[in-house]
């Protein structure tokens, strides 16, 4: 029975870097050329594997930043004590290759027939899969009402700001800045709390479909606030990416 354990069935493929867009001082979007990509849904992620010359390898998961039908792109934030993200955000060049497997995750996804109204709540780079959802909603012509509450340290740390601001009129986009606010800042300040949700969140009676993504502590705090507002747990989808 020694060989009855299951061998890998999800295969790694080689991706080539097709484009790099610097989003903020510590965040970049990497578009990948993946000839055998089966297609993905907004909200899914992929795994990246980097292997050093000595055979040491490291794997990380990154949310897919692009909508259904768009070429695959990931958005990566540099973590100062990270092992993989400093390479991806500082060393990686056009034409470089890396191993990728995916798409992964059919729980934290949205498609127009899932309906809404949608409430998207992001902490830091947790905005990445939510941006894919916003783009998919826009591209598919869905009229599902959507609100995004995006918590960021400073305005300069806001990822996709230009694009998100363009959604205004089609989507309600609100920022809260936790560390510093520019003079005359008219948005929210500080961490997401119940008073903020009282102004942004749909009434529970509308049975909103909610996606929360961010660092673990952020997601736990927000999910608790939503449940206290009587949001049905089955319609609050969460994704945590650990530290910070």
């Amino acid at each position: 029975m020694a060989r009855t354990a299951v061998r890998g069935r999800l295969s790694w493929q080689v991706a080539e870097v097709a484009a790099i867009t610097e989003e903020t001082h510590s965040v970049r979007t990497i578009a990948l050329n993946l000839p055998d990509w089966p297609g993905h849904h907004a909200g899914q992620h992929l795994d990246v594997r980097l292997t050093a010359e000595d055979g040491y390898s490291a794997e990380r998961s990154y949310s897919i930043a692009s909508a259904d039908g768009e070429p695959v792109a990931i958005t990566v934030e540099r973590l100062e004590d990270g092992e993989v993200s400093p390479y991806l955000t500082q060393e990686l060049r056009l034409g470089d290759q890396m191993e990728v497997r995916g798409p992964i995750g059919d729980w934290f996804t949205w498609s127009p027939h899932d309906g809404g109204p949608l409430l998207l709540i992001a902490g830091g780079s947790g905005v990445v899969p939510l941006r894919a959802i916003l783009r998919h909603r826009q591209r598919s012509g869905s009229g599902v009402p959507v609100r995004l509450l995006y918590s960021s340290r400073t305005l300069a740390d806001v990822i996709y700001r230009e694009e998100l601001d363009q959604y205004r009129g089609h989507a309600e986009v609100r920022y809260t800045l936790t560390r510093a606010q520019p003079p005359g800042w008219a948005g929210f300040s500080g961490r997401v709390d119940d008073a903020m949700l009282a102004r942004v969140a749909w009434p529970a009676s509308r049975r909103p479909l909610t996606f929360v993504c961010g660092p673990t502590a952020f997601v736990e705090a927000v999910a608790e606030l939503l449940l206290a507002r009587h949001y049905p747990a089955s319609r609050v989808k969460t994704e945590r990416f650990g530290g910070a």
Binding site: G8, L10, G105, D106
Partner: peptide, 20 residues
């Protein structure tokens, strides 16, 4: 702690279908 989304790739490898 992360959540089960983070092991989606591992479970897909083991079970052959998405388990999230």
């Amino acid at each position: 702690a992360l959540d089960g989304n983070a092991i989606g790739g591992l479970l897909l490898e083991i079970f052959g279908s998405d388990m999230t």
